[in-house]
Structures are given as C-alpha cells and as structure tokens.
C-alpha cells in the first residue's frame, strides 16, 4: 500500500497497524522490518543558492573546509511532488520489490509539503516469512525512493536555501541492486 500525504504521521501507529494487518491475514509472516526517515537538523551540503541572489557560492564555506560539509541548522525542509505520477512511480518500486523478494505485505508512506527537523518524512515496512527478504526489500525500496521517487527537496537554513539532490552514494546504492538482483 502506498500513501503520499501532506499530513504528519506517527511511525509507531503505522507499524502497529501494519503488524495487526499482517496477523489478520494469517500467520505466514515471520519477519517485519520497518524504516522511518526523519528530517535532519543539519544541512546536507553547502548552500549553492542564496535567497534573491541566484547562484552565489558561499565563499566562507569553501574556505572553511570540504564542500560537502554542513552549512548550518535546517529550519524547514520543503518537499514538492508530482501528484499521481509520484504515486505511480512508487507503486512501480513496490511491484519490483515484490518481484525480487517474496514479501507478503508492503507499506510505503511518504510526506510532501513543509516539515521541521525531527519530523518523520518517510515510512517503509515490509513483511515476509524470513527476515532477510524483509530487510532487503525495505532497503531496496528506500534506495529507489532516494534516487527515483518524484520528490524535490528544498532545505532552508537561517542563511538561505538549497535544492537537495541524491548523492553519489545514493546512486551507487541503487546501482548495486541492479548487479545483485535480476
């Protein structure tokens, strides 16, 4: 099941309901894995855009250290999405996960809109007979969400704002699945 929503959610409630749902449909599941992603309080990378000034590199940041270093506390994270298409793409990731692993139940909840640090942004749960399948399917789903889900994140700090793109590590994680699974 997939939910793309603006509203905040409680990951504990989602996990409890997911677990109840798995048990109600019989006792075929021996493993449930869940992942909750939270909005981090520290900016992901240096800011390359400052408000009203277009492209301005933060010189002080460059001088201070590596370009990937943090650039202050995040005040809000804003997520844009593409209604219907976002749900459709996430549904294709679920379909692929079900093809690759014998998972019996999948739940993906993803928020859009404005969020504060500490708020849950994404929740993924998988259930299968054995733990390895549930772990791997959840990991795969998160890797696909990080690089291929139609969301666009803008991180705001006291000094400006920046669009956040997947890192090389995110893309590498996704690529690994294409080598390890057919």
């Amino acid at each position: 099941m997939i939910k793309v929503q603006r509203e905040a959610f409680d990951a504990s409630d989602l996990l409890r309901d997911f677990t109840d749902g798995c048990c109600k449909s019989g006792y075929e599941d021996g493993a449930i894995v869940s992942f909750t992603g939270l909005v981090r309080g520290q900016a992901k990378e240096k800011q390359t855009k400052q408000k009203k000034e277009g492209l301005v590199l933060r010189q002080a940041q460059d001088e201070a250290g590596p370009s990937t270093g943090p650039s202050g506390s995040v005040t809000t994270l804003e997520l844009d999405h593409y209604p219907q298409f976002t749900e459709k793409m996430i549904a294709s990731f679920e379909q692929e996960a079900r093809r690759l692993w014998p998972v019996n139940h999948v739940l993906i909840v993803h928020r859009y809109g404005r969020m504060a640090p500490g708020e849950a942004i994404v929740f993924v749960a998988t259930a299968s007979a054995h733990r390895k399948d549930a772990f791997e399917a959840a990991d795969y789903l998160m890797d696909r969400l990080k690089t291929d889900a139609p969301f666009w994140k803008k991180e705001k700090t006291a000094t400006g704002e920046a669009w956040i793109e997947p890192t090389e590590r995110d893309y590498a994680a996704r690529e690994e699945w294409s080598h390890s699974k057919k």
Binding site: G37, K146, D148, F151, W152
Partner: peptide, 10 residues
Amino acid sequence: IAFLPPMSGG
C-alpha cells in the same frame, strides 16, 4: 509534458 529535475525522496 513534464521536465523533471533530479528526483530525491526519502
């Protein structure tokens, strides 16, 4: 028709 910049969820 949509032109989508790099996507990033999660």
